[in-house]
């Protein structure tokens, strides 16, 4: 009977133990299921339209059950502010931060190895062993556009319009462009116009009038409308090439105001940056002209939203 009593006690103790373990396991699993990963996206404010990037990020967040918050910086865009924002977001409970870096190297130096595996750099395509980057291959995009321009050039003079904004992705695109021209031995002018608005237009017009440039390549899409306004006002034909992905850029392409558009797929950048895959990604871009912009694969990328 004593033996039976021992067995009974063992069974009761086992029962309590198993029920406790199973309950704890279930509660932990339930908590895990109900817990969403918190991701913050920090975007600088250049007047840039982030609509496509945000749309991609939101779609990915919805698919991956991620809690996404988008932080727009003020007009003071520098690495210091970005670093502070990153720290704030992590302190506020973010599991990951995606940042469109103003200056990736400077920012990376400030971060200095902290938050390894938890920061994703969007737009910048320079690889970094400590942090994931999701971006177009900006350099290649610039290079390919440059090669197309050279191929179409027919000895016409070409100028690259630089608005003077120091951004990694812009610098990469310009570097690609310059490489293409240097590689082909084709001369190209590098026009840095840092003015804004009417002043910008005046400076540009002045340069155009006083030069023989007949092809210009716009790498800052926020200046695109100004550039078109200026080129429309000049008597000779100026062919405009651009790296842009705004609705305006697509319209201008459709209106034949832009001859060739290098279209970075920022929807895909936003999507991949948020996805839980968390691996290095180079996103494809499209070189689109009037002939192919309404073709299947281009149309779907150029016109991602149903209005």
């Amino acid at each position: 009977m004593n033996k039976n009593r021992s067995v009974v006690i063992i069974i009761l103790v086992t029962l309590v133990f198993l029920v406790t373990v199973e309950t704890v396991w279930y509660k932990l699993a339930e908590k895990k299921r109900g817990t969403k990963e918190a991701v913050s996206m920090i975007l600088f404010d250049d007047g840039k339209n982030w609509e496509n990037l945000k749309a991609g990020a939101k779609q990915a967040a919805e698919n991956a059950n991620v809690d996404l918050s988008i932080v727009a910086m003020s007009s003071e865009n520098d690495a210091d502010q970005q670093y502070n924002l990153i720290v704030n977001e992590f302190n506020a409970g973010a599991d990951r931060v995606i940042v469109a870096a103003v200056d990736k190297d400077e920012l990376a130096a400030k971060i200095n190895g902290q938050y390894k595996g938890r920061i994703t750099f969007a737009l910048s395509s320079i690889g970094d062993k400590d942090y994931v980057t999701v971006a177009n291959d900006n350099y290649k995009m610039g290079m390919e556009l440059g090669l197309r321009v050279v191929a179409d050039a027919s000895s016409k003079e070409v100028a690259i319009l630089d608005h003077g904004i120091n951004r990694d992705y812009l610098n990469e695109r310009k570097a690609g462009l310059l490489y293409a021209f240097n590689d082909r031995g084709y001369p190209v002018e590098d026009w840095m116009i840092t003015q804004d608005g009417q002043e910008y237009c005046e400076v540009l017009k002045d340069k155009l009038v006083n030069s023989n440039v007949e092809k210009i390549i716009v790498i800052n899409e926020e200046t695109l409308s100004d550039v078109i306004r200026v080129t429309d006002s000049i008597e000779r034909i100026i062919e405009v090439y651009a790296i842009a992905n705004s609705d305006e850029a697509v319209y201008l392409l459709d209106s034949r105001k832009i001859k060739l558009l290098a279209f970075p797929d920022e929807f895909a950048i936003g999507y991949e940056a948020v996805s839980l895959d968390n691996s290095e990604k180079l996103i494809q871009y499209k070189l689109v002209d009037r002939k192919n912009m309404y073709k299947g694969e281009y149309e779907k990328v150029l016109f991602p939203f149903v209005k």
């Binding site: 749309a55 991609g56 779609q59 990915a60 698919n63 797929d265 929807f267 895909a268 999507y271 991949e272 996805s275 494809q284 694969e297 779907k300 990328v301 991602p304 939203f305």
Partner: peptide, 11 residues
């Protein structure tokens, strides 16, 4: 519902 991602080759 995931049309844009599918068109971009992401899904």
């Amino acid at each position: 519902p995931n049309q844009k991602a599918i068109y971009s080759g992401l899904a």
